[in-house]
């Protein structure tokens, strides 16, 4: 069992490296010709969208609470990291160091914000919580529109272009691994118990408020990291980027991918961030398409495309070895 698990971990790592090498090789070989930079950009976008969507899935899928304010946390991460990297630029840090410090600062700021919002807001449930989180995101947006340090209502530009594709990719890998480990531990189990029945959860000795706030903070932390990569990729941003539409977009990606499946979030986010680029000429109809897809998913797969299904190499390996064993027995 443990040996199998080790093999699975190793294979997962190898798989990730292979995907990365493949993409890098494609870029280096110039397969995409003149649009290489453009494709690379889409891949970077996909990476930070994956982080944002997966982190939102912690709250929506695993904790079972509706949050309509994820863009708020993303923007906190984006602005704080932009300010930090701006302040530390030229202080002797390497680009990579600066990038890591900036995204960590963004993540931490968003995480702290998650705790602050979570403590009062998570007393509420369902629709009420959704309204409060939405209001929070709006408040944040209005604040950023008025603080001079965030550029006021104008564009905050001149952010260093630190988010290259390799960096974004590896940060994504680390973040998703963290979230996966979080979900597959006592934390995930506890939070799922709270989702299923919070009264029974407290009767099982679970401190419901604590674990809800903790999960909310972890989710915000990763949202902040996603935002930080975003900021250093876009190099310019305006608070209205993080409006309700953005939260709704992230939420619909979670729901389409599958609430409670990180695999679904990854595939959903990659697909949905590549799709609008591929169909640029229909950009006006993007939100329309989203709504239609969302309605269709809700009708035919209420749990999202992947539901709660999670890709697991251990399981695949187990099944393969099992099949081989039964085949041997049969022979």
């Amino acid at each position: 069992m443990t040996k199998q698990r080790k093999i699975a971990y190793l294979l997962n790592a190898v798989g990730v490296v292979v995907i990365f090498a493949l993409l890098m090789a494609l870029f280096a070989a110039g397969v995409f010709g003149t649009s290489t930079t453009y494709i690379q950009g889409i891949c970077t976008t996909a990476c930070y969208t994956v982080i944002m969507v997966a982190s939102l899935n912690l709250v929506v899928g695993f904790m079972g609470e509706f949050s309509l304010g994820h863009a708020g946390f993303v923007s906190v991460g984006a602005y704080v990291s932009a300010i930090v990297s701006g302040a530390l630029a030229g202080k002797g840090l390497s680009d990579l160091g600066l990038f890591l410090v900036a995204i960590l600062a963004g993540g931490l700021a968003a995480g702290i914000m998650g705790v602050l919002v979570g403590i009062p807001a998570l007393r509420l449930r369902g629709d009420y919580l959704a309204i409060v989180t939405m209001a929070f995101a709006e408040i944040i947006r209005v604040c950023f529109c008025n603080f001079s340090i965030t550029g006021g209502g104008k564009t905050l530009s001149g952010i260093l272009k630190l988010s290259t594709f390799p960096r974004a990719f590896w940060v994504m890998v680390v973040c998703v691994t963290f979230m996966y480990m979080f979900v597959r531990s006592k934390f995930g189990r506890t939070v799922q118990a709270i989702r299923e029945d919070y009264i029974a959860a407290s009767a099982a000795g679970i401190n419901v408020t604590f674990y809800k706030v903790l999960t909310f903070a972890v989710s915000s932390f990763f949202a902040g990291i996603g935002g930080a990569i975003y900021a250093h990729y876009m190099t310019a941003m305006i608070p209205t980027n993080f409006n309700f539409n953005y939260s709704a977009e992230l939420l619909s990606e979670v729901i389409i991918g599958g609430t409670g499946s990180l695999t679904g979030s990854i595939i959903g986010a990659v697909f949905l961030s590549a799709l609008p680029e591929a169909m640029r000429q229909f950009a006006t109809y993007r939100m329309l398409c989203y709504s239609v897809v969302l309605v269709l998913v809700m009708l035919f797969r209420p749990g999202g495309i992947f539901g709660r299904w999670e890709f697991s190499l251990t399981r695949v390996l187990g099944r393969l070895t099992h099949r081989r064993e039964t085949a041997k027995k049969g022979a």
């Binding site: 506890t190 799922q192 118990a193 299923e196 009264i199 029974a200 959860a201 000795g205 679970i206 709660r308």
Partner: peptide, 19 residues
């Protein structure tokens, strides 16, 4: 009955062993 319905039987028990 208030179980954690969508969780496995063993996870229902393990959820109560947090301490």
């Amino acid at each position: 009955i208030r179980l954690f319905k969508k969780m496995t039987v063993i996870d229902n028990v393990k959820a109560a062993m947090l301490r």
